[in-house]
Design a protein around this nucleic acid. Structure first.
Lengths: 191, 191
DNA sequence: AATAACAATTAGCTTAAGTTAATTTCTAAT
DNA sequence: ATTAGAAATTAACTTAAGCTAATTGTTATT
């Protein structure tokens, strides 16, 4: 399981065998059961996450209703806004399935960087890439209609539709479950 | 003018007078006239930007129509997706007003980091903060109605409404200029 | 001052999403 | 296998956005 992380990091920087060991020793890997809440609204996030297996859902509660804002699956990192800003979280993180996660914390990350300084170079790259990807996602969301967003999702993340209930997908697409039903019907009618 | 940048950086890390000089010498500051296109769709972005004065608009052309995706004003950095991914840009960057910009490039940034390694620490922080802010913006956009988004904009960036034409604002809010007109009317009717 | 170019608003019509509520389908637990 | 609860769909109605086109307002230029 650890080797997923080594592999992931190695795509950014080269690691010596000793460095690989340091990472293997440092890293905390934990399994969580379905529906475990990793972070609740109002809490301070002291950890960030790397999904090794399973699926985590990010959602807000607005007027008592859950609004899904993201899904994280294998090989995605989750850096809660609260982790960065050190303010209370505006949203929840919860496991949609049984999920295995590598945990990071500020203290342990700093410790690691002291031992392997080039990790910082990787962090800059990772953060930049996430930033770029966020922007692309935002642009797509803004420039596409609900129906186009649904089609886009079935193209880019077809797995999600099989592992996540449609009502979560609906709010993730910024629409109601009823609207999603209509869209799906519309699409199947016109093949 | 340079001192804006020094000030900005000093919020993240401490600089010695020598380091300040290095930055002052390295940095390229350039004025651009209104309507100058800094980056066009299809081009490879080789530079990133820091707005010292003025306003830059980011927009896509979709079915021949301009769709504004962002505005950047004083003290905001612009890291084009194309700069990060090294792929052709999907969007344009153009000056809404006469604008003064500090330019960065990969080569010059790397050179600078060699001379002032702690700059990398700042980069991690900056990228993380941008990432967090992007996420918040995305969440707001997704969870608010067009009218709420407009109200939100007048609250958080009232300056924009005075310096940017409403048709740009409309597509930035993800709606047509006609819809924005109706929303403004609706709001003014109810006080 | 007149005009041209563009920006903003208004109106009428169409389309699709939101809302509420009922119904059907699916899933999990006893 | 039955049942309870949740998820998904369907329907009827309301609301607001998109679209097309016309009109009014604003700005810049000669």
């Amino acid at each position: 399981m650890d080797d997923f992380i080594i592999k992931y990091i190695s795509a950014y920087i080269e690691l010596t065998p000793e460095e690989e060991d340091i990472i293997r020793n440092q890293n905390l890997i934990k399994p969580f059961l379905k529906d475990t809440v990793l972070l609740a609204e109002g809490e301070h996030a002291r950890e960030c996450y790397f999904v090794l297996k399973g699926c985590v859902r990010r959602y807000h509660i607005i007027n008592g209703e859950e609004r899904t804002t993201d899904f994280y699956t294998e090989n995605q990192s989750i850096i809660p806004v609260s982790y960065t800003t050190k303010k209370p979280s505006e949203y929840f993180l919860s496991c949609v399935e049984d999920t295995v996660i590598a945990l990071g914390s500020n203290e342990r990350n700093e410790e690691l960087i002291k031992q392997i300084p080039k990790l910082e170079t990787m962090l800059v790259q990772m953060a930049s890439e996430m930033q770029a990807q966020n922007q692309v996602e935002m642009d797509n969301f803004k420039n596409l209609s609900p129906e186009e967003r649904y089609r886009n999702l079935t193209d880019t993340r077809p797995d999600l539709l099989n592992r996540v209930p449609l009502n979560y997908i609906a709010t993730y697409l910024g629409i109601t479950p009823e609207s999603l039903s209509r869209i799906r019907k519309r699409i199947s009618r016109n093949r």
